[in-house]
Design a protein around this nucleic acid. Structure first.
Lengths: 153, 153
DNA sequence: GATGAAAAGTAGTGACC
DNA sequence: GGTCACTACTTTTCATC
């Protein structure tokens, strides 16, 4: 699964614009269209490229409040961990979630329509997860940058 | 720019899988392929859908350390704000950045190859931005969820 | 073992109703 | 918004290195 220069170039280009045609892609990485397509297919088969998605502007669909939430769990109730993980997975307003060292146990990025929606969501989180000891919320005032693109040298 | 039911369905589907064909898309939203394509094109023209990108598995390209960084800036030097914003925009290892209320002024998601790379990056951040008063770093131990998909009712 | 050229199949586009 | 014809893109085949 070693990546060639062409593979890395394909990844870079596809992370910027996945609607690029194979002809364009091929030209820019210095391969024929059929070679480029085979490499791309292999990158998908090997799960280097996981999927292609459309990026939507939240403001344009009436969903404009982002929150960063640090959640602290009770460590002495490990049996309540899986339900919490399931809640994270099943709650579409939770866009991102990391388990971290440092202050909080988990950091969540939550995107909702309004502060009222967030209130409801936070209440439900507490209700469904008695192992949530406390959480601190930071309101996002300005989103400077948002990408899942991985930097490739 | 009011969104129809079909528009919202198109957005939902495209956020999951942007490689879907117009035939499939049309069928699943209850339109003809060319109608679906017109709506999709309008969503792109109106910047509701900003772009399509490939999602890459960082582990598969040798980039496996994520950090959450809270940065506190000196408030009495507003002239140094633009350079900081430019540093964020121009540093590909910074995947996400928000300006927040609460403790830190900014929260960054940084993805690097190794802790050593992070050290170099953090040093350079301090060097290039004398208005960074302090920053606290949380190492990501586990990534539970990662999507930019916006939840649409 | 991967490449490129070309053929065959499929999907996207635009004019018209 | 739907139908249809046209164009463009993708995929497979096959010969080659």
């Amino acid at each position: 699964m070693a990546l060639t220069k062409a593979d890395r170039d394909i990844i870079k280009l596809m992370q910027q614009d996945a609607t690029i045609t194979l002809n364009e892609l091929a030209e820019r990485v210095g391969l024929s269209p059929s070679s480029a397509q085979r490499r791309l297919q292999k990158l998908r088969d090997d799960k280097v490229i996981l999927r292609d998605v459309s990026i939507v502007d939240p403001k344009k669909v009436g969903t404009a409040v982002s929150m960063l939430v640090e959640v602290e769990l009770e460590r002495d109730r490990p049996e309540l961990m899986p339900p919490f993980l399931r809640w994270v997975a099943d709650t579409p307003e939770v866009q991102e979630a990391w388990g971290t060292s440092g202050r909080g146990d988990f950091t969540l990025v939550i995107l909702v329509q309004s502060v009222e929606h967030f209130d409801v969501l936070a209440d439900r989180m507490m209700e469904m997860n008695p192992n949530v000891r406390k959480f601190t919320t930071s309101v996002v005032l300005k989103t400077l940058k948002r990408t899942l693109a991985v930097h490739i040298e």
